[in-house]
Simulated assay, not measured.
Amino acid sequence: MPLALRIAQLVSSRQRRGAEVFASDLSEALAALGHEVSFAGLAAPPVEPLAPEVTNVDLTSGPLASMSLEIVRSTARHIRETRPDVIQANGGAVMKYVALAQAWGRTRVPVVYCNIGLSSDWVRHRAQRAWTGWLLRRADVTAAVSAASRDDLLRQYGLDPAVVRVVRRGVDVGARVRADEGRRALTEAGVPSGSFVVLHVGSFSEEKNHAGLIRIVERVRAESDRDVRLVLVGGGPLYEAVERSAPAHVHILGIREDVPALMAGADVLLLPSRTEGIPGVVLEAAAQGIPTVAYDVGGVSEAVRDGETGAVIEAGDEAAASGAVLRLIREPMTLAEWGEAARAFVRDEYSLDASVHAFLDLYREITR
């Protein structure tokens, strides 16, 4: 058996968001294989933080600032004290602090940067590109979340293609929550029994487009005789604003630990995001046999097979998105077929086991 590795998984905060949830799942799977894993958040955790069954630590007690000497020092101290064989920096903000911490602490631990989206959606100015390019070159290898993300990185920064790899996020397609258990979870959360449930799981932030999400469902309700309900799960900076303005058919549940059950009880996942990498929520819903209707941004078309496991819609086309949801209401056989196909697709193409071994291969390559 290969020697065990000491792996430092770093996330912006131990919050229940896509990249952090995957890093948590990956950490537990690596630990189960005998590796020594620490799971560290750079900033203060939420009230109910992620806590995988590995060593958990929060490096600071404040928010994640765009630049903080305290976070640089704390990250440098964490690297020095844990003496990892490899660091995985999950997201651009984390990569920034890892690069600065290694410079501050004069350490040189190999780094895997796990890219989680399209850099071009956030980095638009020449100075930003130069700074981001410098940071990216501090990583020994970049694990791009999708082919679209890899192409974007190569185009933006002229990186060596040999060190930018596509490593798919994996999900555990194990025991499936029964639909009746899922419906019970929704009913207990106040969603009327017998309604057609459109689900959205994600941060209440600008890029998730909650205003568009609500408009799409209002279109669906206007053209359907079913009681269509929109269920929103998550937290974030726009939570209170959305909560204040949401109509009665929108159920806002906040941050939940029973997301798989809520997915199993829903009918369709709706994701009209303005930007995405590979949306983990699509894979998680598929694992519960739930199809997705999503805008074609980032790597969405790599996670949803249009007309087979869901519908991929031109970004911004609310009429087409509502039409896709209406089709699934009117064609229950299509709804069921897409859901089963989605589960089979993630089982075959996005398994957690394959993702774990892909990351292990990267770790071993850069620590030889």
Rank of each mutant, 00 (worst) to 15 (best):
A341W: 07
A319W: 12
L326H: 03
R330L: 04
A320R: 13
M333A: 15
E340R: 15
V312L: 05
E331I: 02
V312C: 05
S355T: 09
A321N: 02
S355N: 04
A354K: 13
A342F: 08
A321W: 04
L352S: 00
W338M: 15
A324K: 04
A336M: 14
R327S: 09
D348Y: 02
A344T: 13
E318R: 03
A342I: 05
W338V: 06
A324Q: 04
L335S: 01
E308C: 11
A321I: 01
E302G: 08
A320D: 05
A315F: 10
A320Y: 03
P332T: 08
S301M: 06
D317C: 05
R327F: 00
R343H: 03
G307T: 06
E314N: 08
V304K: 12
S301R: 15
A311I: 01
E340P: 03
R330S: 11
E314Y: 10
G307A: 09
E302P: 01
A320I: 00
V300F: 08
V300Q: 06
A319P: 00
T309M: 10
G316C: 04
W338K: 12
A344L: 14
G307I: 07
E349Y: 09
V346P: 07
A319Y: 10
R330D: 12
T334C: 11
G323M: 02
A320M: 03
D306C: 06
S301Y: 11
A336S: 15
S351H: 04
E337T: 14
L326P: 03
A321S: 05
R343M: 03
V304A: 10
R347P: 02
R343A: 09
L335F: 05
E318F: 01
R330K: 10
S322G: 12
G323R: 07
A319K: 13
S301L: 08
W338S: 04
A321G: 00
R305T: 09
